[in-house]
Design a protein around this nucleic acid. Structure first.
Length: 239
RNA sequence: GAUCCAUACA
């Protein structure tokens, strides 16, 4: 099982999802018993294919082994699988069916709703999550900020920002920094965007782009050019 | 056991 898992995982991750799934079939043919690791990899492969029918089949097989009850990671991966297959209602069913949820379970569905364009549902779920006493992590905040950006709900975004500062999370997550900069930049709050940007421990091409786009969108071309030059001075490669 | 999940601009 371990060898099969390693192979399947490698192909699922390396962008060969079809081959990962066919390996899984061969594993079944060889009557090697799949375990929780197997299913997580196979879910991932299927999520790249966005094959809902296949998702159902895999889900059914996992249920027969009651793997999603035994290991929360399986349930979490399943939520993500249904989201990637554009089936948020299914994802929600899985979510509701899980007796134990962790921060990843919650965040997967929050982020999933956003991917499916249900930003308000995502915000609602986030509130429910905090109400349940689940501590959000930086990834949760990135998702919530994105929902605020999508809907233009800057008031909520600022609340989230305050929460992030309170936990001083900006020092160790580049994604979080970019998400915040992006939100402020998109809505023309360029001083805020610049201020947060300056406080970030490190910048990358995304955080620079977010800031620059804000300046461009609001006709601050001089600032945009200044960014462009500084960005190269910091040694960020353009592709 | 080199096998397991969610996140940012364009």
């Amino acid at each position: 099982t371990f060898s099969w898992n390693s192979l399947i995982s490698a192909y699922a991750t390396r962008g060969e999802p079809r081959f990962a799934l066919s390996l899984f079939s061969r594993m079944e043919d060889a009557s090697v018993h799949p375990d929780d690791h197997t299913f997580v990899s196979v879910f991932k492969a299927c999520s790249h294919l966005k094959d809902l029918k296949r998702a159902f089949e895999l889900h059914t097989k996992a249920v027969k082994l009651s793997l999603s009850e035994r290991n929360i990671v399986v349930g979490n991966a399943l939520i993500d699988l249904y989201i990637k297959c554009n089936a948020p209602a299914r994802a929600r069913q899985v979510f509701d069916s899980l007796p134990l949820k962790n921060v990843i379970t919650w965040t997967s569905l929050v982020g999933g709703f956003i991917d499916c364009g249900h930003d308000l549902k995502a915000m609602e779920l986030y509130k429910k999550m905090t109400f349940h006493g689940v501590i959000p992590n930086p990834i949760t905040f990135v998702c919530v900020l994105k929902a605020c950006t999508n809907t233009g709900d800057i008031a909520n975004g600022q609340k989230v920002h305050a929460e992030i500062e309170r936990r001083s999370l900006l020092d160790d997550d580049v994604f979080l920094g970019s998400a915040l900069v992006d939100m402020y930049a998109k809505y023309g709050l360029l001083t805020f965007a610049q201020h947060i940007f300056d406080k970030l421990p490190s910048h990358n091409v995304v955080s620079w782009n977010s800031l620059m786009q804000g300046y461009i969108q609001y006709d601050k071309y001089k600032e945009a050019v200044r960014c462009f030059i500084q960005m190269q001075a910091e040694g960020i490669c353009l592709t």
